[in-house]
């Protein structure tokens, strides 16, 4: 076992059983590893590696799902550059991401700090997490009902305080903010919990010292909590932003891309092209574009936020 690099291995030099000479044992171990790895490797090759390559290839073809794909070079990408609906979908998605992530991060940070300072209650954390465990489809439907123009609870409330009713999902200007906020509701507790874990990892001595120096709550938050939390926040942002770019379920259940193209996000557009217009090659080209955007976003965020290091050092 001397070849294992794991931490625990080095500490216990146990003599090998004499029955198996080292080379024999190595062979047996490799063979066992292959057997253990086989199903996962099959899954990886068939459902991750192969479709990735195939997706790249399909993006270079004309394919309607019925006849064989026909190689068309970069045609799909040329069309893509001049496709207004695609550019619109990028803007719509960006608007969604900015509202969704902006509000969600602030709310989650506030919730995390509140929980950290007020209570350790598992029940409270559990309640806040609950929406995250419910399917997007259910969440979308419940809010679709709550935000209904005629009978929805929210518009009833708006009436009551004397505001005009709003067609939350039906109005071009309101649809994306509404969908973004619905998903803030679903994810805020989850995100808060991630940040909360980061808060618990901050050494209490730092707070004690600040208190001795007479710092007030505001200064403690901006001077200590936020800087020390940066690595956790960076990680949380990368995870949530990448998830946010792939918004689909909520739109599919509520507005289906409308009114006009107001909620036709990139993934909704990919779905439309592939499964309602059967431009499978073109849909693949859009998903390549989405893939590149996501890779770029992740890379840029890592660089900008220097995710690995905290200000502490």
């Amino acid at each position: 076992m001397a070849t294992i690099t794991g931490g625990a291995a080095a500490a216990t030099p146990v003599p090998r059983p004499a029955a198996h000479p080292p080379s024999n044992r190595r062979r047996r171990e490799t063979r066992a590893a292959l057997v253990f790895l086989a199903p996962a490797a099959l899954g990886f090759l068939v459902f991750f590696a192969w479709p990735t390559l195939r997706g790249l290839y399909l993006s270079l073809t004309d394919y309607d799902l019925l006849t064989a794909p026909e190689f068309s070079g970069l045609d799909n990408y040329r069309t893509l550059i001049h496709d207004d609906v695609f550019w619109n979908s990028l803007w719509v998605t960006l608007e969604y991401v900015v509202i969704n992530i902006g509000v969600q991060t602030v709310v989650a940070l506030a919730l995390a700090v509140l929980m950290h300072r007020l209570t350790q209650s598992t029940v409270i954390r559990g309640v806040l997490l609950l929406p995250y465990l419910i399917s997007n489809v259910v969440v979308a439907l419940v809010w679709y009902w709550m935000a209904d123009f005629n009978l929805g609870l929210i518009n009833q409330g708006m009436d009551w305080i004397g505001l005009d009713r709003i067609g939350f999902f039906g109005d071009e200007n309101w649809a994306i903010p509404t969908i973004a906020l619905v998903n803030v509701w679903r994810h805020m507790g989850y995100t808060a919990l991630l940040i909360f874990a980061g808060l618990q990892a901050i050494n209490r001595d730092v707070y004690e010292a600040a208190a001795v120096d007479g710092a007030n709550e505001r200064r403690i938050f901006f001077g200590i909590t936020l800087p020390l939390l940066r690595p956790v926040l960076a990680l949380v942002l990368i995870i949530t932003v990448i998830g946010s770019w792939q918004i689909f379920d909520t739109v599919a259940v509520t507005t289906k891309g409308g009114p006009v193209d107001a909620t036709r996000t990139v993934q909704v557009y990919i779905y439309d092209q592939a499964f309602t217009r059967f431009n499978f090659g073109y849909a693949s080209a859009i998903s390549v574009a989405l893939f590149l955007i996501l890779a770029f976003v992740a890379f840029a965020q890592l660089r900008l936020m220097r995710a690995g290091e905290s200000d502490q050092s």
Partner: peptide, 16 residues
């Protein structure tokens, strides 16, 4: 494989 967005593999997986 963690880096590849699900929608990217889902289209070819559907074909498969």
């Amino acid at each position: 494989a963690l880096m590849v967005p699900p929608v990217f593999t889902m289209l070819p997986n559907f074909v498969l």
